[in-house]
Simulated scan of single mutants.
Amino acid sequence: MKVHAASLGFLALFATLGLVAAQTPPAREPQPAKPGEQAAESQEREPDVRAITDLLASFVKAYNAKDAKALGPLFTPEAEIEDDGEVTKGRDAIVERFLGMFKEDGGDSLSVNSDSLRFLGTDIAIEQGTASLTTRAGEPPQTNRYSVIYARQGGRWLHASILDEQPDEDSPHEQLEQLAWMLGEWVNEGDEGIVNTTCTWSDDGNFLQRVFEVKVEGRIALSGTQRIGWDAQRKQFRVWVFDDRGGFADGLVSRDGERWIIKTSGVRSDGRSVSVTTAFTALGKDKILWETLERSVSGEVVSGTDQFYLVRPAPTPGK
């Protein structure tokens, strides 16, 4: 079998850039508010705890009904909301804020889980908890910590201040757990050769690292390594590739429905630049559909697309 140099170059590049497929962690179910579970400092404050619990339930109900006017009476006249550095002061301004939010995000749903409630005096209390906002069916909710200062005015408990805290960023390892299904061995057998890949965690757990080799007519024609990491600035997965001939490439990963799209560029050992756009779709835990959408060498577009499969190798007999 005769293999053209350009074909082998593409095969090698595809081998180094692949195997990031469409699997995502299960969505965390939003936790509903649990009236009556807030902790009070003494049983003497139970009527106040119930009143604040009812106030919280009224807030969630009005929010999910997208009723900004019903939210207004739940705040003191001089109340404040701080979210992502933006501060809204005064009951009227708060109502206007929610009116604008509901026009933009009319389909979301709020749930809260109160963790603690402390009374600082007769008419002041502080609550802390977690709020979850579900924006679309099937998407993970947006979750953040919050703290509320309640004030009793005219015999009623009201919101005096709400602070939405920014959620903690997941560590690189936690982000990469989305791709932990990649661990282990994969193989692609095509007309031009066989690509074998082994994927493991890096020693520090902050990268997935792959070792690959391309065999043509039973001989190793190319080998190399790849690292997959989390780019905290771009909020995307990034890949870096190095082959044993001195070629290298890097790229970014984004999701498109059920597919993951990888756009990469690099330099081959012969000095020519290479750009490739690929797409991956998981077909169960042991099979991946791999498509090449666009590719070019030294700025010249190579026509045509490819479609093939990656699978886990069959177990060795007797094991």
Score class of each variant (00 low, 15 high):
2 K>C: 12
4 H>T: 14
4 H>S: 10
6 A>L: 11
10 F>L: 13
12 A>R: 02
14 F>Y: 13
15 A>E: 03
16 T>F: 15
17 L>Q: 15
18 G>Q: 03
18 G>A: 14
24 T>I: 00
24 T>G: 01
25 P>G: 02
25 P>R: 09
27 A>W: 01
31 Q>L: 13
34 K>G: 06
35 P>R: 14
36 G>S: 08
48 D>E: 11
50 R>T: 13
51 A>V: 05
53 T>D: 15
56 L>W: 00
56 L>A: 09
56 L>P: 00
59 F>W: 14
61 K>C: 06
62 A>S: 13
64 N>L: 08
65 A>H: 02
66 K>L: 07
66 K>G: 08
68 A>K: 03
68 A>T: 08
68 A>H: 05
72 G>T: 06
73 P>M: 02
74 L>F: 07
79 A>L: 08
79 A>P: 01
81 I>A: 06
82 E>D: 09
83 D>T: 14
85 G>P: 09
88 T>P: 01
89 K>I: 08
90 G>W: 02
90 G>I: 10
91 R>M: 09
91 R>L: 12
93 A>H: 07
96 E>N: 15
98 F>V: 06
99 L>D: 15
99 L>I: 14
102 F>G: 03
103 K>T: 15
109 S>F: 15
110 L>P: 03
111 S>E: 14
112 V>R: 06
113 N>A: 11
114 S>A: 07
118 R>A: 06
118 R>E: 05
118 R>W: 00
120 L>I: 09
123 D>T: 12
124 I>M: 11
124 I>N: 14
126 I>H: 03
133 L>C: 02
138 G>E: 04
140 P>G: 05
143 T>N: 11
147 S>V: 10
147 S>Q: 11
148 V>T: 07
149 I>C: 01
151 A>C: 03
154 G>T: 08
155 G>A: 10
155 G>T: 07
161 S>P: 02
164 D>K: 00
165 E>A: 14
166 Q>Y: 02
170 D>E: 15
173 H>L: 03
175 Q>S: 05
181 W>Y: 14
182 M>W: 03
187 V>L: 09
195 V>D: 10
196 N>V: 13
200 T>H: 09
201 W>T: 03
204 D>C: 07
204 D>G: 08
208 L>E: 04
210 R>L: 12
212 F>Y: 13
213 E>R: 14
218 G>N: 07
223 S>G: 11
224 G>Y: 06
226 Q>G: 12
236 Q>F: 01
236 Q>I: 01
237 F>T: 01
237 F>D: 04
238 R>M: 06
238 R>C: 09
242 F>N: 07
245 R>V: 10
246 G>V: 06
246 G>P: 10
251 G>H: 07
253 V>W: 10
253 V>Y: 08
254 S>H: 14
263 K>P: 00
265 S>D: 13
265 S>T: 13
266 G>L: 00
270 D>V: 05
273 S>D: 13
275 S>A: 13
283 L>V: 00
286 D>T: 10
291 E>S: 09
293 L>Q: 15
295 R>C: 04
304 G>P: 10
304 G>W: 12
313 P>V: 02
315 P>K: 11
316 T>D: 04
317 P>N: 00
